[in-house]
């Protein structure tokens, strides 16, 4: 009986949210996304819904996304590290009407993957990586962004 209910619920969940899951990425997939972006400069922001300074700097990233279509803004949620429910992130993104791409990193042991994203990163949030695959230049900051910071970082990877 239990099994039937579970299966029904699973089927229903799948039916109601057909696209759910595509925003959940493992490290390898995230690295592929970053590497495959050949045209645009990427601003990759590591954040979480519980992180107050992250939420505070979100409007700066959203403004960049709106003003500069030549920049790819990706918001990588670290929420799953603490809470396995990705719905919390999706609800948050919907409520805030976030236009930038939101990806939810689905990894367990940060000690195994933090260095693969940025060796200089301690793991503290927020953190932002700016990458230009055309010039091969990258900039990484591990602090809250303020007005004008993103523009400077982007200029530094041209």
């Amino acid at each position: 009986m239990h099994k039937i209910i579970t299966l029904t619920l699973l089927a229903l969940a799948g039916f109601l949210t057909p696209a759910a899951g595509q925003d959940l990425v493992r490290l390898q997939k995230l690295q592929q996304i970053i590497q495959n972006e050949k045209e645009k400069v990427q601003v990759i922001n590591f954040w979480a819904t519980w992180c107050a300074p992250c939420v505070k700097e979100l409007p700066l990233l959203e403004k960049l996304k709106a003003d500069q279509p030549g920049i790819a803004v990706r918001l990588i949620s670290m929420d799953m590290d603490l809470d396995p429910d990705p719905e919390k992130v999706r609800r948050f993104a919907a409520r805030k009407k976030i236009q930038s791409q939101v990806l939810i990193l689905d990894e367990r042991n940060p000690n195994q993957w933090i260095d693969q994203i940025a060796k200089e990163w301690s793991g503290a949030l927020p953190a932002t990586l700016v990458i230009n695959n055309k010039t091969g230049k990258r900039k990484f900051v591990e602090k809250e962004l303020h007005e004008g910071d993103l523009e400077k970082l982007i200029a530094a990877v041209q």
Partner: peptide
């Protein structure tokens, strides 16, 4: 070791 966490 490293870990995700709140920045000071």
């Amino acid at each position: 070791t490293k870990a995700i966490g709140c920045g000071i």
